[in-house]
Computed example of a mutant assay.
Amino acid sequence: MTTTPTENTTPLLPGSALLVGIRSLLVWAIVASAVSAMFLRGTHQSCSGGLAANGQGFIDAGGAPTAIEPRCGSIELSPSPLLFALLAVVVIGTITRILRRAGDEDHAFRMLNNARMAIVVLTLVALAVGWIAIMTVHVDDWSSFSLYSPLPFGQFDIETWPITQR
């Protein structure tokens, strides 16, 4: 007498495959946040002049003597909190859309895959925009300058000081 084992093809919990997909989406968002926090960084520091060779005055960025003390400055790029908020909106918005509009599991899985792709694209665009923003920074005069902000992907922290302070 031989017995054939019966296969149980139903999951232990109805909808568990969808829960796995949502967990995967959350993991992608957390990894994207960590990648952004680690790699969306950069600094630029310079002085727009210096001290004269005799120590009795200052020179400007062009090397001409001046009585005005030159300024130095630094710009630091970091991820914007808006980037993390956008990643959270993608996750929460996808879960909400699944609850409201998904007719079946296949439709829900397509929504999850699209959200994962949106997270990847958003992270890559943020990295590219941030790196381009910090690499193109060039400040000749720290007393008056303007920068293009990489918002909502990154933010600049700008600090200036007189040349004799550091």
Rank of each mutant, 00 (worst) to 15 (best):
P65G: 08
I119C: 08
I92M: 01
R23M: 13
T164P: 03
F145S: 07
S78N: 14
I92N: 06
E159R: 15
G62Q: 07
S46L: 03
I134F: 01
W131T: 15
P11E: 12
N113I: 09
M117W: 01
F153V: 14
P79F: 10
E7V: 13
S74I: 11
R41C: 10
V90D: 05
S48H: 12
S16F: 06
L122Y: 13
I158Y: 02
S46V: 04
L87G: 13
E159W: 07
A102F: 01
V35Y: 07
R71T: 01
I75F: 00
V31T: 14
E76A: 15
N54I: 10
R101N: 10
N8R: 06
L12V: 13
G154S: 13
V139R: 01
Q45V: 15
S46P: 01
A67F: 05
L151R: 09
I95Q: 04
P152Q: 04
T4C: 00
L127D: 14
I30F: 06
R166D: 15
A128I: 15
E105L: 05
A115L: 03
I119W: 06
L112E: 14
A32P: 11
P150D: 15
A64R: 09
L87W: 10
A37V: 09
A64G: 04
S74Q: 14
S74H: 11
M1H: 05
V120C: 02
L18H: 06
Y148G: 03
L82W: 11
V125C: 04
T66E: 05
S36E: 05
V89C: 00
Y148I: 15
T136G: 01
D157C: 06
S149E: 13
P11R: 11
G154Y: 04
V91Y: 03
I132L: 07
G21W: 02
A29W: 08
I30S: 10
M111R: 09
L122H: 12
A118P: 01
Q155N: 13
T160E: 02
T136E: 07
V125P: 07
T43F: 00
A34H: 09
G49R: 04
W28G: 08
I59L: 00
P11A: 11
Q45N: 13
C47D: 10
T96E: 06
L82K: 12
L127V: 14
S24V: 06
V35D: 12
F109P: 01
Q155R: 14
T136N: 04
D106S: 04
G130F: 09
Q45L: 08
E76T: 15
L51S: 07
I75P: 02
Q165L: 09
V137D: 01
A118N: 05
S78A: 15
L124P: 11
L87I: 03
A102S: 09
A133M: 14
P150Q: 13
R100P: 04
C72M: 08
D141G: 03
M117C: 05
G55C: 15
I92W: 04
A128G: 14
L151P: 01
I68M: 00
G130C: 11
R116F: 01
G42Q: 10
S46N: 11
V137W: 00
A85N: 07
G73C: 05
V120W: 05
S16G: 04
